[in-house]
Design a binder for these strands. Structure first.
Length: 338
DNA sequence: AGCCGGCGCCGCCATC
DNA sequence: CTGATGGCGGCGCCGG
């Protein structure tokens, strides 16, 4: 051990690819998180690079412009974490049509320790054939398009973000920050990630606990005749044990036919829907600061560990971390909705 | 970890 | 004959 120098880890290079028409928060959100990791730990843990094809100023899809470095300033093998931002359709088309971008991105994605996308950036990865056989997330409104474009990928429409091997993809806009926090957590521990979340005041007034799939679900419950009412009944009785026999009996069908009709008209199995509703409600309770032990019986789980495991499986983060990020109203009175 | 019982789910097939 | 039904058995996942 050197006597007066503490061991100084080499900073990790994080490269975020931006382009004309990209979503500014997809770039700045993760950039803020990684930079904040440097601040909270008082060590340079990450070097963040904002890149674009040719470098220079790019216009985002808001009034904000970004100053970027050209791709060629960074060798693909030097990069630890590589992310593509999302953006509008024409911007993404321009990006994927650029041959030098394609080459660089493919090389970087094979060499980097981690690669991924935020929001519709997944479409760029799909165009470069980097999603094959992977579980991925993208913006909820784009899930079916992505599944169509990339049939051999498994699009998880209710995850905030998904980590499959070296690939990380996040759902939309602000979930890029959630995903970046998870990356920091896996690099340097939960404590660092939680400190960042606090510093960025991520836990205040975020509507992020609203399920990504609830709009989809609402649309579905208007569809098939006997099932809309059933779903509403399930919603009101989540604390009860809800096995398939019971549900089938409620709509007076045999278990087998119930299963068939249900999955066909709703696109998911009964148990999966029940779990979805339970975990969705869990998020709402978590955001109010309730403990897992209190929540579990309210949403029909026998134990808090069981709930915790199911939660992690679906959302790619622990309930603790979720509460840390979304808890609100802990300064006395209730917080009014804007 | 690793084993096992139970349940969700589905393929198959006889029946209506 | 076709299509819907539902019973049976097996496989895989989840939880203890």
């Amino acid at each position: 051990m050197a006597r007066s120098f503490p061991p100084r880890p080499k900073p990790l290079d994080v490269a975020i690819l931006a382009f004309d028409g990209c979503q500014v928060l997809d770039v700045t959100g993760p950039a803020m998180v990684f930079e904040a990791a440097n601040n909270v730990s008082r060590v340079v843990r990450y070097n963040v690079h904002i890149l674009s094809s040719k470098g220079g100023t790019i216009r985002t899809n808001s009034a904000v412009a970004l100053v970027t470095k050209p791709l060629k300033t960074l060798a693909p093998r030097a990069i630890d974490t590589f992310l593509i931002a999302g953006g509008d359709r024409s911007g993404l088309q321009m990006l994927t049509a650029d041959v030098s971008v394609r080459k660089w991105v493919v090389q970087t994605s094979t060499k980097a320790r981690r690669y991924g996308s935020i929001c519709t950036g997944a479409f760029a990865l799909a165009n470069f054939a980097l999603l094959s056989g992977k579980r991925v997330a993208t913006h909820w409104s784009a899930c079916s398009d992505l599944a169509q474009l990339c049939p051999d990928a498994c699009v998880d429409s209710h995850a905030l973000f998904v980590n499959d091997g070296r690939l990380w993809t996040s759902a939309g806009v602000t979930t890029g920050m959630d995903m970046s926090l998870a990356m920091v957590a896996s690099d340097f521990g939960e404590a660092v990630a939680n400190a960042i979340a606090k510093r960025l005041v991520l836990y205040a007034r975020r509507p992020g606990y609203q399920s990504q799939f609830s709009p989809v679900l609402r649309a579905q419950s208007h569809a098939a005749a006997p099932f809309a009412e059933l779903i509403n009944w399930i919603r009101e009785n989540l604390a009860k044990p809800l096995d398939v026999q019971k549900l089938a009996a409620r709509v007076s069908m045999s278990e087998r036919t119930f299963l068939r009709h249900f999955t066909r008209s709703l696109g998911m199995t009964p148990a999966r829907l029940v779990e979805m509703l339970r975990l969705d409600l869990t998020r709402v309770y978590l955001a109010t600061g309730m403990s897992l032990k209190e929540i579990a019986p309210k949403v029909g789980y026998l134990s808090s560990t069981q709930l915790s495991r199911a939660f992690g499986r679906r959302f790619g983060m622990t309930p603790m971390l979720f509460r840390e990020l979304h808890q609100r109203g802990d300064c006395g009175g209730s917080v009014t909705e804007s």
